[in-house]
Amino acid sequence: MTGKPQVCTQDGCEGKPVARRLCSKHYQQAWNAGTLDVHTPAPRRKINRTVCPDDHGHGDTTVCYVLHQCRCDPCTDNRAAREAQRRKLKAYGRYDTGLVDVTEVREHVLMLGEFGIGYKRVAELAGFKSSTPVRTILWGRMDPGRVGEMQKRIKRETAEKILAVKPVIKNLGPKQPVPALGVHRRVQALVARGWSVTRIGERLGWTAANFWSLMKKDTVGAATHLAVAALYEQLWDQEPPRGEWHEKAAYTRAVNYAARRGWLPPLAWDDIDTDPTPEAHQSEQTKGERVLEDVEWLLESGEPAAQVALAVDRKPDAIAKLAERHGRLDLARAFYGRAAA
């Protein structure tokens, strides 16, 4: 502290002191009256000439010199160089404080929060060592005596780093939920291209039960979305291998299944995440026939009957009875006795 009072020492005056502990008005009055000697000047600031620890970043900033009153050689040299540069730029009329208005940055952080990127995640993506700079922009200072004081300006470098963080899915946390529409469309497009569910699941590390439960969800984790998007970018313009007879059969089953379901291929989408969903064609199949179609495709893909039952969300004996009613004894036999097992 400097020891200078925050207001004029004249009774009843709340003006800011400029010299001799007097405001501008009372200083001028004392000058005209020749009574300046009566007013004691404020004591000079006592500088505690210390040397900060080595981990304080001497010479990198002016924090040690100004706040900690460190007077080591790196701190004093850095302070002198900064002051010389400041005076030169002011003389040339090119001096820039390096500060910008914080309003745009604060609005950007709030927008990122609405997208799902919290202030700690913003600080991490911006490359800050802690979340304090972003937290201070949102909720004000936490310094003693200045708690809640909102910033008006911040460093230009800080603003540029924060504004560089964009509201995209790759910047979300891995478990942050996002709409599953893009995942569903990408998987459906790959199946329409001939990639079987088994092959897609193997590349993603999913089982058939995981796959079908995912296709029923409205949201997925951001990490899942990115994994499916990365696989889609690899495979959308490629056909699966068809060298062996079983590979040809799997390809044909996948293409036919996607065609019956009305699943669109990759080239049908301009933006697979945001394009409106086309109107679905009316199908003459009953719900039971569609279930049996799913069951047949999964069994032909090599999935065990227990996993198929989980995938279509039916009990094994219910699938067997459904298959009998539709005259599909070949499918019913796969589920006989499964309920007791």
Rank of each mutant, 00 (worst) to 15 (best):
T2N: 01
Q6L: 06
R21H: 00
K25G: 00
W31N: 09
N32P: 06
L36A: 01
K46L: 02
H56E: 15
C64R: 08
V66Q: 03
H68E: 15
P74K: 06
R87M: 08
K88S: 00
A91W: 00
Y92H: 05
R94G: 09
Y95V: 08
G98Y: 15
E104A: 01
E104Y: 00
H108A: 00
M111Y: 07
L112S: 07
E114D: 13
Y119N: 14
R121A: 08
G127W: 10
F128M: 15
K129N: 10
I137M: 11
W139L: 15
M142I: 11
R146K: 02
G148N: 03
T158S: 02
I162W: 12
A164W: 10
G173W: 12
Q176V: 09
R193Y: 13
W195D: 08
W206K: 04
N210E: 01
A223M: 05
L226W: 05
L231H: 08
Y232N: 04
A250I: 01
A254F: 09
L264G: 09
D270R: 13
I272V: 04
T277D: 06
Q282K: 12
S283M: 08
E284F: 14
L292I: 07
S301L: 11
V308E: 01
A309S: 06
K321N: 07
H326Q: 12
L331F: 14
F335Q: 02
A341H: 05
